[in-house]
C-alpha cells in the first residue's frame, strides 16, 4: 500500500489518506481482516498529526471499508475488501468528473437512476 499525500493540494490530508487506503483495499493490496497501520506509526511516517490519520480512518469507517475496534485499531471489513471499496472509489471518480463537467448533484443522481432501470 503506497500512500502519497500532497500538502499543496486543495483536498484535505485526511481525505487524501482515506482515498489512498480505499484504493489499496479496492486493488486487493489489503485483504479482509487485515489491520491498518497504527495511527501513531502512520502519523510519524507521514509527519502529519495523529488526528489527521484518525479522521481518515473514521471516514473509511463511515464508508464501511474498515471497522474501528478498541485495542485492535482499524480492520478491513469483508464488504470493503469484497468490492465496496472499489465501488466507493468508482463513485468518487464519477463525482469528480461530474464536478468538472459542471453537473449538479441532481443531474448526476438522475443519470445514475436512469442507469439503474
Amino acid at each position: 500500500m503506497l500512500i502519497r499525500l500532497d500538502p499543496g493540494s486543495t483536498e484535505p490530508l485526511f481525505a487524501q489518506l482515506a482515498a489512498a487506503i480505499r484504493g489499496a483495499v479496492a486493488r486487493g493490496e489489503i485483504s479482509a481482516g487485515e489491520r491498518l497501520p497504527g495511527a501513531r506509526d502512520l502519523a510519524d511516517s507521514l509527519s502529519v498529526n495523529v488526528h489527521t490519520v484518525l479522521r481518515g480512518y473514521q471516514q473509511l469507517r463511515d464508508e464501511g471499508v474498515v471497522e474501528l475496534r478498541r485495542g485492535r485499531g482499524a480492520v478491513v471489513t469483508a464488504r470493503g475488501a469484497g468490492g465496496l471499496a472499489a465501488l466507493r472509489q468508482a463513485v468518487a471518480d464519477v463525482t469528480g468528473q461530474a464536478r468538472r463537467l459542471g453537473l449538479t448533484v441532481h443531474e448526476l443522481t438522475d443519470m445514475i437512476r436512469m442507469e439503474y432501470r
Binding site: 500500500m1 503506497l2 500512500i3 502519497r4 499525500l5 500532497d6 500538502p7 499543496g8 490530508l13 493490496e29 487485515e34 489491520r35 497501520p37 502512520l42 511516517s45 507521514l46 509527519s47 502529519v48
Partner: peptide, 12 residues
C-alpha cells in the same frame, strides 16, 4: 518523490 510530498509504503 517531490520535496514537500509525504509518502509511506507498507505491507504485511
Amino acid at each position: 518523490v517531490e520535496s514537500d510530498e509525504r509518502v509511506v509504503w507498507t505491507r504485511s
